Amino acid sequence: MRAIILSAGRGSRLLPLTELMPKCLVPVGGRAILDHQLRALAEAGVERAVVVAGYRFDQVGAHLALHAPPLPVELRFNPFWAVSSSIGSVWAARDLLDEAFCLMNGDTTLDGELLGRAFAAAGRGVGLVVEPLAEPHSDDMLATVEGRKVTAVAKSLDPASATHRSLGVVVAGASSDYPIVLERVIAGTDGINAYHHDVVNALASQGEVEAIVEDSGSWQEIDRPEDIERWSARANRRE
């Protein structure tokens, strides 16, 4: 299992924190978001990570050089980060998708136990880690789960029909159709502006996405400054 972390975006909703640094380096609990992710991946047994960066790419490289990560990390540049959505970063790592992989949003903090459970539950195809939906938020990537299958995933889903929300973690086996569908989606109309979840949604429409349900709550998407405060409050409760 190798991990691909999508960290190319600026994170405009985290301004002014991202005025001078990329979103993945924003400190949360005294540690960059990227450092939280790399530590969790190492704890889950991942042997190699690829970080796809774009905005202030040089800072990400300098950070990795200064803060020795707990597993080997390859840094890749997405030159289209400013004109494409997250699918562009997946495209920059498309040569890695013919083996088992874990794809992660670059703005989500989670722990190694959560990832370990996701990897243990993954099959040979594609799985999406989801959480039962309690109260939808405007930033949520919503999903509909029927039985053990994800049938749809999109921000535009009607919250009344959505049952879960995505944690932004995709796991896939070496025999998955993810690379084929990625090419089809990005080549479609306005494909460069697609989310990487649009690939999962296309696979879900074919009945090819397993729902990996996680209800521990041990994760936090860092989308806005108040999300950092929520992370800190939860960390204090755990202590």
Score class of each variant (00 low, 15 high):
N105M: 12
K23V: 09
F77A: 11
V181E: 05
V52T: 07
H67Y: 09
E135H: 12
S89R: 02
Y178L: 09
A202Q: 10
V169Q: 00
E183F: 07
R230P: 07
G112Y: 04
R224Y: 12
E74I: 02
R238A: 15
E208W: 02
Y195C: 13
V90N: 07
L15D: 13
A82N: 10
R184C: 13
A122I: 02
F77Y: 12
E229M: 12
R117S: 10
M21K: 14
L75V: 00
H63T: 00
A53Y: 00
S86A: 13
K149V: 10
A100Y: 04
L6A: 05
E183L: 14
Y55I: 05
F57P: 00
L203W: 06
L96M: 12
L64Y: 01
L6G: 01
P72L: 08
A42W: 04
D140K: 03
R184L: 15
E146G: 11
H137V: 09
D223E: 15
Q220Y: 09
D177Q: 08
P72Q: 09
H36Q: 06
V90C: 08
A118W: 00
Q37F: 06
N201I: 06
W81C: 04
G54E: 01
A172H: 03
L75F: 00
T189S: 15
D107S: 06
R39W: 03
V26G: 03
K23W: 04
A235P: 04
V153Q: 08
Q206P: 02
A134N: 12
H197P: 07
V170G: 06
A120Q: 12
L15P: 08
M104N: 06
P159I: 13
S12G: 13
A65P: 00
A40W: 01
R48Y: 05
G88H: 01
